[in-house]
């Protein structure tokens, strides 16, 4: 009697053990399959990125010459010749102008949000509106710039209209990164400054802004990098010109992204070449700004 019970129990035990082992095997297999799938996802993302960078780097490096920097684009109905000096200088002008508008506004706004009224009703409204501004599609922003600045105010296609439209795009980004960097400054810094009898203005300019500077600069560099690659805001505000910019109002300016957008669709081989070189220059500019921002972050982490 007792022997049969023992045997039954043994049977059941080994049966269960086998089942558990089979299940464990299956679970380990699923684990491996999922791991392989996530690696494939990473490859699916990085392969196009690396292909893109290498292709533009190779084509750009073989096509680039001093003419690109020394001559403006000569565009007529039959051919496209010359270099990209007008587009390069136009891009730099647009970036400089839009930074000159958006950096003071954004940094000061960020100071208000972080230092003066972190929980105020106006601050909440500004944050909400900045989030909405950041989400306005770039072409919609470009249309608003066209209708209000170019047509209603009568600025015409111009560097200032393009730069102001771009700065509306950069502003929320700089605002929020400034606020975030200031918030990350330890509260004890502020208390120490106040305890030494410092005024609020002094405390902000000498203590908190200084401590938050690497973070703020990173935000500014990254927003400049994003702005330099934008096209849709500028198409109908900056227009396009084959000459170097001469005036801020009533005179259209060229820029690199326009060259990529329009010349890539023209059928002359020389226009394709200019579009490829412009892509290469844009990529090089954006990547070097990103690297600079990253180095700043690392310096900040070291303290």
């Amino acid at each position: 009697m007792s022997e049969t019970v023992e045997a039954l129990w043994q049977d059941d035990f080994s049966y269960r053990r086998k089942r558990i082992q089979a299940r464990l095997l299956r679970r380990r297999w699923i684990d491996r399959v999922i791991k392989v799938l996530t690696v494939l996802a990473v490859i699916a993302l990085l392969y196009p990125l690396i292909d893109m960078i290498l292709m533009f780097a190779y084509k750009g490096a073989t096509l680039i010459s001093t003419t690109i920097f020394t001559q403006v684009t000569a565009l007529n109905s039959a051919t496209v010749t010359g270099g990209l000096q007008n587009a390069i200088s136009g891009t730099l002008l647009l970036i400089a102008l839009s930074s000159a508008i958006s950096v003071p506004l954004g940094v000061m706004g960020g100071i208000y949000l972080a230092e003066f009224s972190p929980r105020g009703r106006l601050s909440g409204l500004i944050r909400f509106v900045a989030d909405i501004l950041a989400a306005v599609p770039s072409i919609v922003l470009g249309y608003a710039g066209l209708l209000f600045l170019v047509l209603y105010l009568g600025w015409g296609f111009s560097a200032l209209a393009g730069a102001l439209t771009l700065s509306v795009f950069m502003f929320p980004y700089i605002l929020r990164t400034t606020e975030l960097s200031l918030k990350n400054v330890p509260q004890s810094y502020r208390e120490a400054a106040m305890a030494l009898g410092s005024s609020k203005t002094n405390m902000i300019s000498r203590v908190t802004l200084r401590a938050a500077l690497p973070g703020i600069s990173t935000g500014i560099i990254l927003s400049t990098s994003i702005a330099s690659g934008e096209t849709a805001q500028l198409l109908y505000t900056a227009g396009y010109s084959g000459f170097n910019p001469t005036a801020l109002l009533h005179s259209p300016v060229g820029y690199l992204t326009y060259v990529v957008y329009v010349f890539s669709q023209l059928s002359f081989p020389t226009s394709q070449n200019l579009a490829l070189v412009a892509s290469f220059l844009l990529l090089a500019f954006v990547i070097s700004l990103n690297v600079a921002a990253r180095l700043l972050v690392r310096r900040m982490a070291k303290g």
Binding site: L45, P48, M52, F56, G229, E230, T257
Partner: peptide
Amino acid sequence: LTAGIPSIIFGYW
């Protein structure tokens, strides 16, 4: 870095 690449470059590629 991918997030920072201009959209027109994506389009051209």
